[in-house]
């Protein structure tokens, strides 16, 4: 019966609803370019959500730990074998996402008798300048959103990943207003924390919420959460002497930047 086109569409719609429900409690992740690199930041209490993929690529993920792990391993394997057989310069985030991860995730999502990936991913690839940084979000159904490429006039210098589409949009609206090019790490950490606060507020409210909370509400929620959760952050360094650009920031290091 699932072979009938209508049933299939219905099954996919149900499945989308199921996945969205499963993902609806994730803590948001903000990634943004600053002068000396790309910052990934989230707040959390238990498990790691920001990972090193290759020399110039990092990943943030929300979803089921098992699924995140499979996708993370796949990405690392593909990047590592490519970097070994050709060169590190041939490892490209665009290819990794478009030709490897997206088709597999779409396939898993549409094979309605199998399990979909319960995960959303956000990637960042460091470039020589902030204008050349690439951000890319891959959804559980294989859909890809980038920060602008292929001649798009406006290129965003950030990417967000949140539990719901509504809170994603709120975070992007917030960053579109408050993001400044060529920030210092200190300013970037502040901007990312506020964006996280917006996303977290948006996620905990009802789904209908489309209004950006006011400045005080954002700051209040941020400080409340900072009191009980740890900052998880990592930087892809723009001008590191070594080929490996990924550096995790400790909670202490991130908090010292807020002082």
């Amino acid at each position: 019966m699932i072979e009938e086109p209508y049933r299939w569409v219905e099954a996919i719609a149900n499945r989308r609803e199921y996945v969205e429900t499963q993902l609806s409690s994730g803590s948001p992740i903000a990634a943004l370019s600053f002068r000396d690199g790309i910052l990934f930041l989230t707040l959390g209490r238990n498990r790691q959500k920001i990972f090193e993929i290759y020399d110039r690529i990092a990943m943030g993920a929300i979803g089921h730990p098992g699924d995140i792990e499979r996708l993370r391993m796949a990405a690392i394997e593909l990047a590592s074998t490519e970097g070994f057989t050709r060169s590190a310069a041939d490892v490209s985030l665009r290819r990794l996402a478009h030709y490897s991860l997206s088709p597999v995730m779409k396939n898993a999502f549409e094979q309605v008798y199998g399990a979909p990936f319960l995960a959303r991913l956000v990637f960042g690839e460091i470039g020589p300048t902030p204008d050349e940084d690439l951000f890319l979000r891959v959804e559980y159904d294989g859909a890809i959103a980038t920060n602008g490429s292929g001649g798009a006039p406006v290129r965003q210098h950030f990417a967000v990943l949140s539990a719901t589409t509504a809170s994603n949009e709120l975070m992007e609206t917030f960053l579109r207003d408050s993001y400044k090019i060529d920030m210092e790490l200190r300013e970037a950490v502040r901007a990312a924390l506020d964006a996280w606060s917006v996303g977290h507020l948006g996620g905990t409210r009802s789904n209908g919420e489309k209004q950006l909370p006011d400045r005080d509400a954002i700051a209040k929620h941020r400080d409340e959460q900072l009191a009980t959760a740890g900052i998880e952050a990592a930087v892809l360094e723009r001008n590191a002497s070594s080929a490996i650009r990924y550096r995790a920031l400790t909670d202490e290091e991130a908090r010292s930047l807020l002082a």
Binding site: G66, E69, R70, M73, A74, E77, S100, P103, V104, N107, A108, Q111
Partner: peptide
């Protein structure tokens, strides 16, 4: 084949 290749990763 791609999907199978990914399964091995786990």
């Amino acid at each position: 084949q791609r999907a199978m290749a990914l399964d091995q990763f786990s």
